[in-house]
């Protein structure tokens, strides 16, 4: 199962490397969003520094929606998913493989976005460990929910445009918890015992379980 998952992940990353959609479209989009926040908030650096965590997570969530819609569309096109099933790859392996590739892409996006936020909004992190762990957990949550809903609504164009409406309300706890974790890390009043980390962990575990158990049922029809 592990080798199958890795094979699926490598396949997705290879598609990304060849098409460069993430690099050429999603990354510039997320940077533009951050710049627009700066314009709309009149570049008052003190305000921007305070609300940087929220802006970062909103930008990442919006950008991830692009990647989420795309990852499932790739499988629906030309019956690629049937091909995977014909190869005898289980739905759990497909789920884990696609999730790994999606997470890796979002992580790359986040690293660049963090650099942008640090430079543009004059952000200074006090607790790097809290930033790293909360970002990983929140990304797992976003990726998992995205993949589940991406596959639920990926049948046609109409369904695909639904993905943001379906995913964003579900992700509300992630946005709240990740933003608060980041605020704590910026203000140096949070450590690895931050209660928001617990919420992020619970969310990630719950939705990973839901994803692994329901992905087969979603795909089989």
């Amino acid at each position: 199962m592990i080798s199958e998952s890795i094979a699926v992940a490598i396949k997705d990353l290879r598609v990304e490397r060849r098409s460069k959609v993430g690099l050429n479209q999603v990354l510039p989009f997320s940077l533009v969003v951050v710049l627009l926040f700066g314009f709309s908030l009149n570049t008052q650096s003190r305000v921007l520094t305070t609300i940087a965590p929220g802006l970062f997570w909103v930008a990442i969530t919006f950008s991830s929606l692009y990647l989420i819609s795309r990852t499932m569309r790739l499988e629906r096109e030309n019956g690629a998913l049937d091909g995977l099933f014909l190869l005898g790859i289980s739905s759990v392996s497909i789920f884990i493989g696609k999730l790994l590739a999606l997470l890796l892409t979002i992580f790359v996006l986040e690293v660049i976005q963090i650099a942008a936020v640090v430079i543009l909004f004059s952000v200074h992190f006090e607790s790097i460990a809290l930033i790293c762990i909360s970002t990983i957990l929140a990304t797992v949550g976003i990726g998992t929910v995205g993949l589940i809903y991406g596959s639920l609504a990926s049948d046609d164009r109409l369904g695909e445009s639904l993905v943001p409406l379906l995913v964003l309300p579900i992700l509300a706890p992630i946005i709240i918890a990740a933003t608060n974790c980041w605020s704590d890390a910026l203000g140096n009043h949070g450590g690895l015992g931050d209660p928001w980390l617990v919420l992020l962990t619970v969310f990630a575990i719950v939705f990973l379980t839901v994803g692994v158990s329901s992905f087969g049922a979603i795909l089989e029809d």
């Binding site: 639920l152 309300p169 706890p173 969310f203 839901v210 329901s214």
Partner: peptide, 16 residues
């Protein structure tokens, strides 16, 4: 499936 996911999500939303 969507309804059940929403049902699971509501307590987490509420708690957060």
């Amino acid at each position: 499936i969507a309804a059940l996911i929403a049902f699971i999500d509501v307590p987490i939303v509420h708690e957060s």
